[in-house]
Design a protein around this nucleic acid. Structure first.
Lengths: 325, 325
DNA sequence: GTGAAAGCGCTAACAG
DNA sequence: CTGTTAGCGCTTTCAC
């Protein structure tokens, strides 16, 4: 593995010159440049990124913390985030927490150890304090971690309202919604509050089923929907994340309930799975690519110490009509 | 940001001692150790991973190259690979190639630049030569890149046979299979050859439709299945990856074809989506977690220069019965 | 047991 | 324009 020194010696120049050549920094006469480039070629020299990172004390690496990469929402988020990072010269380190907060802590530590230059987190298992202790470039997806830390999220208030309006328009009278853990103040929870509010005074009954919506365990959701359908026979409308909507479609099929005739379903997220089912699911679409781009911009602005704009970014959602309403 | 030198000075010891303390290497008297640890605590000192990586010339980073993270098969693969890497003290860098071979080249270059210690690739857009040029720790998923490069894959021959036998057992007479690009010698292609062989001499007709199976574009697959069903009215059995099986289920539903009565479907991969549909898809399950573990072991063995075993690892598959056969 | 010193490979400041 | 030199922060001999 040849080094910059070897190249310099063989080319009969100083290491500074070689550095200038490979970095296109400073001025080098074209004859020198040519000679050096040729030697580099000959020796098959490749500058060590390790050394470069070291003395610029930067990795061009951003950690992406998510509960589960295989979950469609996070999978799509990471796909877009990775792409966006790549466009800007950064690489993506993925971190699955899979409901283990200790792993989340480890990844957060990578920031202190300067293994990554910044972090985007979509996981929520850790206490907020752990995040606040980190005064490094950080951005959160759908969680307010403190005034200092940028958060990007979809307009969940509008999302919840759109879903409710859609079910009302279809004439539903007994609606069930599968909510997240209300103990945590997630922007994402707003959709359920907004959903309930939109139903208020319409005479429509609402049953809220607590559900761990970002858990990627289909049988868990399926079981929950089945229980709900069995317990509340009158239900004619269901609202939940795409995975739950998908489970609802399956449960209805197994119970012989016709969709959308007897039961209407509205999903949330707008992930690819809403199209995989025989009946395309009507769903509230989150702008996943834009969320990813916004989160990436937020961290990179902080890494590169650019003037920063607002700390809370809310992006628009819309309802995509399917065949379940 | 305090450095090891600051700590040494404040503790009144040499930097070597501090280094021994934080690495638990060499011997340090317990009094010294205590004093140093206290100072470290006080100063809130954290060793720079950047510097450490630099002088060990190692990153503990493995690149994971896949066509599309959001594709269920690759999403699950990455999830397991990341986990496995984490257990062994490595981190995962993800690289979406999304059908762009130039990006694949860039990621491969990271190996030469020593940005990653090794690479696991599940992408196949690049010419084999580009891989062969890299004589660094590398492992491939489902592709033979050369005798030197380890490859892990499922037992696709058995997989193809299982699928064929299942459809035969259901009494199918006119079967269609959606194959990959036969130009490339992928182990994964064996399933289609085996599938065809198993049908040989049974009097059952087989139509093979060329399909880009690892393309993550549902509407593309859906369109293809629809065309096939329209063109070959007599088809009563379909074999393809889970995504295609899913599309087939949808196409059948839209065409008013009853599954499994009029049409049987067998998927391949065993990804989570096979359970998402109202009728669970009968599918050949690849041991994704084991494939990931094997690939990770292969790269790490090479990174850590351990004696290596065989270069081609074939893992068992099985048929998971669903409701589409 | 512990301190001093020599790098790891590169960048950047500083003389020429 | 270009060579020299001083680090970047840590690990690792090598004496003491």
């Amino acid at each position: 593995m040849s080094t910059i020194k070897d190249v310099a010696k063989k080319a009969g120049v100083g290491v500074g010159t070689v550095s200038r050549v490979i970095n296109y920094s400073g001025a080098v006469s074209s004859t020198t440049r040519q000679r050096v480039e040729q030697i580099i070629e000959e020796m098959n020299f490749v500058p060590s990124q390790l050394a470069r990172n070291f003395n610029r004390s930067k990795n061009f690496l951003v950690g992406l913390i998510v509960p589960d990469i295989a979950h469609p929402f996070f999978g799509e988020f990471i796909r877009h985030a990775e792409n966006e990072l790549y466009q800007r010269g950064y690489k993506a380190l993925v971190c699955n927490t899979i409901q283990q907060s200790d792993r989340e802590q480890v990844f957060l530590d990578m920031l202190r150890y300067r293994e990554v230059d910044g972090i985007i987190t979509g996981s929520h298992s850790l206490d907020i304090e752990a995040y606040l202790a980190v005064k490094a470039p950080l951005a959160a997806l759908d969680r307010r971690l403190g005034a200092e830390i940028p958060v990007v999220h979809a307009d969940h208030v509008k999302g919840g309202r759109l879903a409710a309006e859609r079910l009302l328009r279809s004439g539903c009278k007994h609606i069930a919604q599968f909510t997240g853990d209300s103990l945590v103040t997630l922007p994402a929870y707003d959709r359920h509050t907004a959903f309930a509010e939109a139903l208020n005074g319409t005479g429509v009954s609402l049953t809220s089923i607590p559900n761990q919506w970002n858990r990627f365990d289909f049988s868990y959701h399926l079981e929950q929907v089945k229980q709900t359908l069995d317990e509340y026979r009158e239900i004619d409308g269901i609202f939940g994340v795409d995975l739950i909507a998908c489970a609802a479609l399956k449960a209805a099929s197994q119970r012989g309930i016709a969709v959308p005739d007897q039961l209407k379903i509205v999903g949330y997220d707008g992930t690819c799975i809403s199209a995989f089912t025989p009946k395309t699911i009507t769903t509230v679409v989150q702008p996943i690519a834009d969320l990813a781009a916004a989160a990436v911009s937020a961290v990179i602005d902080r890494i590169e110490k650019r003037p920063i704009g607002q700390n809370e970014i809310t992006l628009d959602v819309y309802l995509r009509e399917g065949e379940t309403t």
